[in-house]
């Protein structure tokens, strides 16, 4: 029973268009002009979206957590180049000669202790943060690249192309991803890059494509698409210049979920010892598990807690940022309208 006040502008972030609904296109004006208008509108939408986003305390907190992990990732090479001698602190090949009691508990030289092979835990933790970002972001970019294209193409052409792509997506979402990756690890040597690629491809052709397609369908019927077609724009032009940019905000949301999935999958597979990766949080726990330290309780907490907490924290943070973004692009979830 709630009507939108007729005399007010639509609330911030209404709809999901990053660039706003493109203004009536004046064909006599040059492209540059249009780009400027679009940039201005994009900026406005972003600013308004941000205003909604910061209302979600959980979202802001999660963003802060991600920022902390990013700082950690950046600090590793700096520390290695300055205060940490590579012989001791290399996350994979280092050995702490200063102790004999590996795994050593936290001490001044090794704030989080060492693992059973005498390697510095903090260094491993920071090094792995970088890998996780690379993995997560690569997978997310691949997903978004494929999903926006698949979604836009399916919505634009419809018909057989649409059905084929959507059946494929149905097939992929019907498969349990972790189990599939476990099977793949039995057949191929999976390293970080292949893993990111596979996760990205599965995500891109899977669920994300379905959601972006339905969004693309609603964009396809907008007047400016008609106008672009009338002005002689090619299919390629319409898809890549007019439809896909409008899908980006929503795909940003699904990028967050892809990152969560990728980090999680990597950790699980590493923990099970199925990946061809030198160091990661999952491997840290794997190492502890293989050494039999996991069930010795809190005695060797530094072997598990930092890595386990990092996985959980970073996964949750990306996930919760995604949920907060959901409230930005999907006004129906918000507490107030108007």
């Amino acid at each position: 029973m709630i009507e939108r006040p007729p005399n007010q502008p639509p609330p911030a972030g209404e709809g999901v268009s990053l660039f706003g609904d493109a203004p009536e296109i004046d064909l006599s004006r040059g492209r540059v002009d249009l780009t400027l208008v679009r940039l201005r509108m994009a900026w406005r939408t972003l600013r308004d979206g941000w205003a909604v986003f910061v209302e979600s305390r959980i979202g802001v907190l999660s963003l802060a957590i991600i920022a902390v992990f990013a700082l950690m990732a950046f600090s590793h090479p700096i520390l290695m180049a300055t205060v940490w001698e590579p012989d001791v602190y290399d996350p994979v090949t280092g050995y702490a000669f200063d102790r004999f009691d590996h795994p050593a508990p936290p001490n001044w030289r090794h704030p989080l202790g060492t693992d059973s092979l005498g390697r510095d835990i903090l260094s491993q933790l920071l090094f792995s943060a970088k890998s996780e970002f690379i993995l997560g972001i690569t997978a997310a970019l691949v997903t978004v690249g494929i999903a926006t294209t698949v979604g836009a193409v399916a919505a634009y052409y419809g018909g057989l192309v649409d059905s084929l792509l959507m059946r494929l997506a149905d097939l992929i979402i019907a498969l349990p991803g972790i189990s599939l990756l476990i099977v793949l690890s039995a057949l191929f040597n999976l390293n970080l890059f292949y893993l990111a690629l596979i996760i990205g491809v599965l995500g891109g052709f899977g669920g994300t494509a379905i959601i972006l397609k339905s969004q693309a369908l609603s964009i396809r019927v907008k007047p400016y698409i008609e106008a672009a077609r009338a002005a002689g724009g090619s299919h390629f032009h319409v898809i890549f210049v007019h439809i896909i940019p409008n899908l980006l905000p929503l795909s940003l949301l699904y990028m967050m979920f892809t990152v969560t999935g990728a980090i999680f999958a990597e950790a699980v597979l590493s923990f099970l010892g199925l990946l061809d990766i030198r160091m990661s949080w999952g491997i840290m726990i794997h190492t502890a598990n293989v050494g039999g330290y996991l069930l010795s309780g809190a005695n060797y907490w530094w072997l598990v807690i930092p890595a386990g907490a990092s996985i959980t924290l970073l996964c949750s943070a990306f996930y919760l940022v995604g949920r907060a973004l959901d409230e930005v692009v999907n006004p129906r979830l918000r507490r107030h309208d108007g």
């Binding site: 959980i58 969560t260 999680f264 950790a267 699980v268 923990f271 099970l272 949080w281 999952g282 726990i285 598990n289 996991l294 069930l295 309780g297 598990v304 890595a307 386990g308 996985i311 959980t312 996964c315 949750s316 996930y319 919760l320 949920r323």
Partner: peptide
């Protein structure tokens, strides 16, 4: 918060914690 944490918790570590 607890739901999302459990949902995204690192399953093997969580399972081991339960065992412990």
């Amino acid at each position: 918060i607890s739901g999302a944490t459990l949902f995204t918790a690192f399953t093997p570590a969580f399972a081991l914690m339960m065992i412990w």
